[in-house]
Write a protein that binds this DNA or RNA. Sequence first.
DNA 1: GAAACCAGTTTTTTT
DNA 2: AACTGGTTTC
Length: 967
Amino acid sequence: MTDTAITPNDQQQELIDATEGTYLVDAGAGTGKTFTVTRRYANILDQDDVEPEDLLLLTFTNNAAEEMKDRIVAHCDYSMAALRDAPISTFHSLAHDILLRYGFEAPQILGIDDRITSSTQLLENEVIENERFREFVGRFVRDHPEYEDYFRILSDESSLLNLIKQLAAKGIFPTREGWFRHGERYLDGDFEEFKVYFTEANTANEGANGPTQSDLRDNLGRYGRNKCYLPEAPGKTELRGGRGTKQIDAEWANRAFEEDRSELKQFIHDLYFEYIEFALGRNYLNFSFLLLFAFALLCEDHALREELAFEYTMIDEFQDTSEIQFKLALLLAGTDNICVVGDWKQSIYSFQYASVDNIRRFEERLQTYKGELNNDIERVGYPVENVTEIELTQNYRSTQEILDFSECSLTLPATNNEDFDADDVRESIVSLDADSNNEHSQIKATTGDDEYETLLDRVQEIVDNPEYAVADTDADDGLRPPTYEDIAILTRTRQFGRELQQRADEYGFPVAYEGGVELFSTDQALLLLAWLRILENDADRGWAVVLERAGYTLDEADQILDTEAYPSNMVAFRDELADVETVGGIARRVFDRYGFEDAYADTLVTTLEGVFSSTHINRGEVIQFIERSLDAGSTHEVDDSPGTDSITVQTIHAAKGLEHPIVILANVNQHNFPPSGGGGDAIRYDDTEGLRQTKRYSTVHDLPHVYHSWRHDIRSACLSREYDEERRLMYVAMTRAKDHLLFSAGSSPSALFENLPLESEESVPDVQPADGGGTVQSHLQISIPNREGPVAQSPHTLIDDSVFEDVSDGKGSEFGRRVHEFAERYAEGETVELENSEAYDDKYHVKKFLDSLDGEFRVEEPAYLPLTVDGEEVSISGIIDLLSVTPDNVAIIDYKTDRGQHAKPEYRKQVSVYYLVLSQCFPDREISASIFYTEDGSRVSIDPLTKEELVALVRAEMATSSTIPAG
DNA sequence: GAAACCAGTTTTTTT
DNA sequence: AACTGGTTTC
């Protein structure tokens, strides 16, 4: 959005002008929040006595901070250079800056003598931190045998690290002697609050014939099932009463809540405190500790707090802030000129410790936190009683139809038996008004047994369809038919999106998966891992992968592993790798060898170089890191935008802040949205319950055993799971849509889907392969990386398409695809139906031909050929239809469904590429290449071009193309 | 109809 | 660990 020419609306102007005082801004989706915030900033800055350093602007991401700066510079008298050091940053970078400038002694506040230094590292990688934490725990257990039993009840010690981070995010820290300020109070929980939940759950329900049992008694029907409690535990009947009882005795609220937790608290205290010491000893901090120390420092260093005190404080995306960030902001603010901007309806980061009550109960928390911070001396000197609320309700993104419909997501029951009060929520929703008067929105819901196909079918229906016209100011009537690019498919889970992408690829639909990618499960990473294992003498696991990749069959690979007679070119490569000193170097060489010149390979190299920056490399550590990352499914942003007209697939989380003309919210299925399962580990913290353990190790009855906590089982029966955030996720997804909004589910839709105020249609998909998928006939792509910056991929066909225009008449790509698909399935040994099938003659020829071959079949093998053309690294890739592999020979076969053979010179280029690739993979076998014409069943041998001849062709191609970036 | 029981499912990601 | 949906028992 460019904002130079835009005039603020009245609400925006009110906020821009309201520079003095405390403001809570409810800025709904698409209401021009960033625009207004930056204008307000510029407006404050334009006052005579205000300098950039008086004005604090906090954001959630570095990107947001950068964007803010850019837009501010465009609107005030300051240059980018002048604002370079202005406090426009994330909470974390601000905390980092403060610690580096003033905080070397901050650990002293907790009673730790170690210092933060300018060389203290910020440990960003979670996998590495988990590794360090594991190491720490090993040491901790040795030093504290008295806590041994706690580790017996945990399935995974890294859950303790998450607990530590959760406590830190609330401002609960240990000191050498105890807990920082009133942290310990939080650990005890809140019995009064618990009692409310207990009573609520224990109220008898209304039945048709009088009262029925309370939800609590119902939930406790499973009490003790498959559980083993300590002998002190009450029996099921004692707890629930006999048959016909409607409620359980109120006394159980006390008995379930009250237990001696002093040892548990001591354990967590020692673990937490010593981990902070360990981290400082190893000279690192994590993101949580950054905020922890900055907060502690500002609490206790009164002079510093007064020195920093900002005249104006603004916080963007306030719904994403954690409790400690709120408290930190109160200490940073020097006056009550505080402005928080956000939208509680879009708070979807609770798993990252965001607390939605920061914004929903802003005034209440403001006063509570001020009271806490001022309980011994005055730290917050300004009044917090006068908060003005401003609402931005003018929406510049969606139609009114979509805006109105979106609100229903916040009031949908998320499971079939959830009872939540939708009226409460409904009251607090600030409705949005569409800026446009368009009323063209389609809002529909579809189910289908194969949801992937249903979705593709939908996409096919939408593209170019005037019924799904999207707004376009350049079009005559303001609308134009949609293209792939206009469509975004949003999903709750990453897995669904990835599988959808695969299915879409099979049908030739252009799809771009955006957002984090599981980098370490890519082919690139697995091959790198294999070579590292080979270097580390973990030979079998490494060689197996490498040999398979090179095309050896399982039997051949086994043979090679047994005899250790590895192919000589591979051994030579291994020896070459052994001398490389850095991970980055090894990775680059491996990727070069396989012709990986893509964004994944680049990101892998950068990630590994970032993590293992030290010059001398410990390959074992790298292997372990890759294995753990693979295990943890850790994701990385990969800049792999194909830049072509393609459908966007992303998670709802990744879509936050973005907009799309047409949004399809997919995978609204049971177990997926909302996701079921996954309540934390055996030691956990919760605001109501405080610090608890759900299990206990004991040796009563002389039998060592992990017992379940009967108290926990009663408590969890009172506290039902919250689904508010799932509803908000749905809201976020829906408000991304500008023109049309569709929902999709599979065979078992979730309650969120079923409760939508829409009639859903059942779809019987009939998906046709899309054109331009490039899976038929000519498959070659040349990609040319740009030397500057990330790899720019420009697909070009090496084959002159005009040759085919007058050849494939009447038959077309659909015909070719059918025959190719038949050939693939038959070669893979599937049973295929030939009688009465379309393209009978061609299929018959293929079948007969395949029957005549005696090698082992490999179908649809990808081939990559790296070339150097005039110093430029270029790779040509394609898919080989069929390889027939015998111990001595490899035959390349490419099916062609053309009528006539006059395109043969063009095909020669294609199979030559395959020939050269396979010559490298199978140096010891004879390679032959041929084209199989399915029309008449003839096999034509091809005399391949040499590498030099291919290079010349590519050079010519590059010269005639204007879109290839200049080297 | 209410209650009890059984079997099959199963996450999000930035600093 | 929690939720769905189907079946059995009283």
